[in-house]
Simulated assay, not measured.
Amino acid sequence: MRRDRDELRRRIHAQLNKGQELHALRARLWFGSEGVIWRKQQEEQSEAARCLTLLTNCVLLWNTVYMQEAVWPLQAQGYPVDETHFEYLLPSRYEHINRLGKYSFANPAQVDPQHRRSLRQP
């Protein structure tokens, strides 16, 4: 009985951590207006919230694709990759996101045929 409760507590704690990571990502992306929606009309508020959701989903997708790109070569080289550990990966990391500055999307020489940049080598 106690062991079941401890396992449930661990699972709940893990889910809370994932939720907090997602909230931190959204806070990082919503850096203007200190996280406050200053629109008076409900439709404008909804539009701002949808934009944040879209941007968050873009970051999550980007991170997931590049996590896969990091795992596939390891599997191809014969390293044992336990797929049960994937549930512990968090695609909501944001340290690499440049919120301010210049962005360039025009250099096709740095991407592969699937339009992805190569991974940094350790």
Rank of each mutant, 00 (worst) to 15 (best):
residue 111 V to N: 01
residue 64 T to K: 06
residue 94 Y to W: 13
residue 112 D to I: 02
residue 115 H to N: 13
residue 43 E to K: 10
residue 42 Q to H: 13
residue 76 A to N: 11
residue 104 S to W: 00
residue 59 V to Y: 00
residue 107 N to C: 13
residue 108 P to W: 01
residue 91 P to G: 01
residue 96 H to F: 00
residue 99 R to D: 13
residue 52 L to H: 07
residue 111 V to G: 03
residue 102 K to P: 02
residue 95 E to D: 14
residue 72 W to S: 05
residue 46 S to I: 09
residue 96 H to R: 08
residue 77 Q to D: 10
residue 99 R to M: 12
residue 110 Q to S: 12
residue 78 G to S: 04
residue 46 S to G: 12
residue 90 L to Y: 04
residue 114 Q to W: 11
residue 119 L to C: 10
residue 95 E to L: 08
residue 89 L to Q: 02
residue 74 L to Y: 00
residue 83 E to A: 01
residue 79 Y to E: 06
residue 48 A to L: 03
residue 42 Q to T: 14
residue 101 G to N: 05
residue 96 H to C: 00
residue 49 A to V: 10
residue 82 D to Q: 07
residue 91 P to S: 04
residue 58 C to F: 10
residue 60 L to C: 00
residue 80 P to N: 10
residue 58 C to H: 09
residue 108 P to I: 03
residue 106 A to G: 07
residue 63 N to W: 05
residue 113 P to W: 07
residue 102 K to H: 12
residue 75 Q to F: 09
residue 82 D to P: 01
residue 107 N to S: 10
residue 111 V to M: 04
residue 49 A to R: 02
residue 54 L to M: 11
residue 105 F to Q: 08
residue 95 E to M: 03
residue 53 T to V: 08
residue 117 R to P: 03
residue 82 D to V: 07
residue 42 Q to D: 15
residue 58 C to K: 11
residue 93 R to H: 11
residue 119 L to K: 05
residue 54 L to K: 11
residue 116 R to I: 03
residue 75 Q to H: 03
residue 95 E to K: 10
residue 83 E to K: 06
